[in-house]
């Protein structure tokens, strides 16, 4: 199963990974359309932590024993047999248990449509996740575990 790994020493803090992730998860999937029409309502599953000159991007680790999965009240958070932790928006009620138990703090409330949690899904429908593909300095890489 592929995992995305961040390289702190090459992250510039440009946050383009956030831009491309939000675009990929938007309705229109077009970067200009997404930002112009859905501004203020965009959600990126990856986000950049910043402290002075140190920056790096973090997203769902798809933990082997994911606390969000066993803490989910509705079963909306589940693990595929490939080991990817996915989120079923339809089932989610926005109880925020997952946000509470995620030790990495990578799940975010999506307060736009239905107050449901939002997180990385490893861009399963793409060959290379959007963040990895578009990082200008190759600070995000895929490793196969």
């Amino acid at each position: 199963m592929k995992k995305i790994v961040a390289k702190e020493e090459y992250c510039m803090g440009c946050r383009l990974c956030e831009v491309y992730c939000a675009t990929k998860n938007s309705k229109s999937k077009d970067i200009i359309k997404t930002f112009k029409s859905e501004a203020g309502k965009l959600l990126s599953a990856i986000f950049v932590e910043e402290k002075e000159h140190i920056t790096f991007a973090i997203q769902c680790r798809h933990c082997e024993d994911a606390p969000c999965v066993y803490s989910c009240l509705t079963g909306a958070m589940y693990k595929t047999d490939k080991g990817v932790v996915l989120h079923n928006k339809e089932k989610c009620v926005g109880c925020w248990m997952c946000i509470m138990v995620c030790p990495f703090g990578v799940i975010k409330p999506d307060l736009n449509i239905k107050k449901i949690a939002s997180k990385c899904d490893l861009c399963l429908d793409k060959e290379v996740p959007a963040c990895v593909e578009n990082c200008p300095n190759e600070a995000l890489v895929i490793i196969n575990k």
Binding site: M12, C14, R15, V19, K36
Partner: peptide, 13 residues
């Protein structure tokens, strides 16, 4: 301005 999405990458960098 038609293309600018105000992602502010330029501002930061």
């Amino acid at each position: 301005q038609e293309k600018c999405i105000k992602c502010q990458a330029c501002v930061r960098m």
